[in-house]
Simulated scan of single mutants.
Amino acid sequence: MSDLTAYPVTRRWPAKDPSVIQLYSLPTPNGVKISIALEELGLPYEPHLVSFSTNDQKTPEFLSLNPNGKIPAILDPDGPAGKPLGLFESGAILLYLAEKTGKLLPSDAALRYEAIQWVFFQVGGIGPMLGQFGHFFKFAADKVANNSYAMERYRDEAKRLLGVLEQRLEGRDWLMGAEYTIADIANFPWVRAIEAAYGAGDVIGISDFPKVMKWVQRAEVRPASVKGLEIPETS
């Protein structure tokens, strides 16, 4: 049995089964990317809720795994060379899990990098822009009530990025065509959040992006998504 006691994070969130991947997360657009991927890959894992309401992400135990204090993070007892590996940043974790299993990435080298570029598109664009839009639209509306610049800036950039996805999805079911990959898993939870988390579909004009809407619908009804979107449980 794997020994994870050298990792302080396991003191706050003890592993019931230290032989499986330990997931430290919250069911946010960033967090569910990893639970969905783990479900798609069929990898055994143990989820641990990192509650923002109690500032779990700022505790020394969590910061020992992710000094940036953000979710998600994982601890894989069977990392490279069979040694435990702690890892943070959702894009890096998606790449690691795909390469660990040889799944959810094209086998062709050129197509593999094409898929990876769409993961980076999410990490550098879709996530930050939609996240900032959601913050000002839903959580900080009172702070910008007399100055709409911030919300308009992120709204317009979000719409531009959705246009990029709309164009990419022309004639494609998934971002890489017929193959569902980590590129889809990285992006669709954030686009889904426009309605599901922020209730801002009308403000964004999501109906102007029908291919994107159908892509999200295809992704969210996959069995792994249905389950992963609710992990970790919050109650």
Rank of each mutant, 00 (worst) to 15 (best):
L169I: 02
S35Q: 07
G127Y: 00
L23E: 04
I231M: 04
L169Y: 05
M1Y: 09
P8S: 02
L26C: 11
F121T: 01
E114D: 15
G228P: 09
E89S: 14
K214F: 04
A141D: 10
K70I: 07
V20Y: 10
A145Y: 01
I93N: 09
A73N: 05
I126D: 04
G201Y: 06
K16N: 13
P189T: 00
A158M: 06
Q117R: 15
F52N: 00
L23M: 07
G102D: 07
E170I: 10
G91A: 11
L85R: 14
Y45A: 03
L38E: 11
E230L: 13
A98F: 00
V191Y: 07
M129L: 14
L95R: 06
P80L: 12
E195I: 05
E39Q: 11
R112H: 15
L229Y: 13
A115F: 07
A140P: 03
L49W: 12
A150V: 08
L49V: 04
N66I: 08
G163C: 05
K143V: 02
K227R: 15
S51R: 15
E114I: 00
L175D: 06
I185Q: 10
K58A: 15
L165N: 01
A219S: 15
T59H: 10
K58R: 15
G31A: 06
A15T: 01
Y198D: 14
K103W: 00
N30I: 00
K143M: 13
G102L: 06
I204T: 02
S51V: 01
Q122P: 01
N30L: 00
E220A: 11
E195V: 14
R160K: 13
R218I: 02
I182F: 04
T101Y: 10
F137C: 03
A110S: 13
E166M: 06
L175S: 03
L41D: 09
Y198R: 11
A15K: 05
H135Y: 13
E114W: 00
T101M: 09
E166S: 03
H48E: 10
D108Q: 09
P210A: 07
D17L: 03
G69I: 03
M151T: 15
R112A: 12
P72Q: 04
A145P: 08
S51E: 15
T5F: 01
T54N: 07
P106S: 09
Y113N: 13
V191M: 08
E233S: 11
H135S: 00
G102F: 11
E166Y: 10
I182Y: 05
I204E: 11
G163E: 04
V164S: 05
W215N: 06
L94H: 00
E89T: 12
E99H: 10
M151W: 01
A158K: 03
A98D: 04
E230G: 07
P44L: 04
S235P: 11
G86K: 08
P80M: 13
Y45V: 02
R12L: 12
I231E: 08
L97E: 01
V32R: 13
A110N: 12
V119K: 08
R222A: 13
P80F: 12
L63S: 09
Q132N: 11
A145R: 14
G102H: 06
A141M: 01
E179S: 07
